[in-house]
């Protein structure tokens, strides 16, 4: 049987070579191997990002700031202290701030207004690294995990939400800097790759957008850190040769709202684990 399989494979390889399909065949095998690697690392029991979730949970209930209170009365949109499903509806309009905010902007707002916490050092540690623990990444992991198993459902009902969405869409197509790139350069078509990495088409609603947005925050094996969508967009602009976008700025919120809208109805399964 085995010999037959080997012979059959050889025959197929010969056929493939003759028909000029060799390169395609090799590519498919490579993609299968990458998929196998993805499946292998995607084990929730071994995902270090759940440590971030635990740290975030502890931070959420720790009294801090000059008011010496925890974040437990922070309203993430579903009511004070209500965490379940809040991340699935962000970014959204908050009447108390009269602004559309994403998760990072809202957490900072709660730290400042609720706890009267000095956030300079917290923002300095916005992205974790060797010897740097990020309160904000941990809190985002904790809050996002409370929407795991739910579906994205952003509301575009107020004037400010509509403006934010429209600006996000325009930013997605905005070409700039020394390489003339926009988000759409890499994420505007189906079935494209950068090197061997498959690129999700984020220019239309559907599965690629749902699977992308529904799998952040994620543990990045290549970076040995848990990362949020805020960091992913910062990293995209790095590759696009733009300067680093300001943390928790409205441009990032606008793009996040646009992408989350494209992912509407998609399952949230976070924190995930990726290459």
């Amino acid at each position: 049987m085995r010999l037959l399989t080997v012979l059959g494979s050889l025959g197929f390889l010969l056929f493939a070579t003759l028909s000029g399909l060799e390169a395609q065949q090799t590519t498919d095998v490579t993609e299968q191997e990458i998929e196998r690697y993805r499946a292998m690392i995607s084990d929730p029991m071994a995902n270090p990002a759940f440590l971030n979730v635990d740290r975030g949970e502890a931070l959420w209930s720790t009294a801090r700031g000059s008011k010496n209170v925890s974040l437990q009365q922070c309203d993430l949109g579903e009511g004070a202290g209500k965490l379940e499903g809040a991340y699935a509806k962000l970014p959204r309009y908050f009447a108390d701030a009269d602004r559309v905010m994403d998760i990072e902007q809202r957490l900072l707002w709660c730290m400042q207004s609720l706890q009267d916490l000095e956030t300079t050092d917290i923002v300095r540690r916005r992205f974790s690294g060797p010897g740097v623990v990020s309160d904000l990444e941990d809190l985002v992991a904790f809050v996002a995990n409370k929407s795991s198993g739910m579906k994205f459902a952003v509301s575009i009902s107020s004037l400010k939400e509509r403006e934010m969405l429209a600006v996000g869409e325009a930013l997605f197509y905005r070409r700039s800097a020394v390489m003339d790139f926009s988000c759409a350069t890499c994420h505007g078509d189906d079935g494209k790759r950068i090197r061997l990495q498959a690129l999700p088409n984020l220019a239309k609603p559907g599965k690629p957008a749902q699977e992308t947005m529904g799998s952040w925050p994620t543990y990045r094996v290549s970076q040995s850190q848990m990362r949020t969508m805020q960091h992913r967009l910062w990293d995209c602009y790095r590759q696009m040769r733009m300067p680093a976008p300001d943390y928790a700025s409205d441009g990032i919120t606008a793009l996040t709202l646009y992408l989350t809208k494209q992912a509407e109805g998609g399952d949230i399964v976070v924190p995930s684990i990726k290459r």
Binding site: E163, L165, A166, V167, M242, P243, D246, S249, G251
Partner: peptide, 21 residues
């Protein structure tokens, strides 16, 4: 959504990259 105006988008851009190197 209505399309964002160029002025609107560029205002967001200036606000997102406040002090480039």
């Amino acid at each position: 959504p209505a399309k964002a105006s160029l002025e609107q988008v560029e205002a967001y851009v200036r606000n997102t990259w406040k002090s480039p190197p």
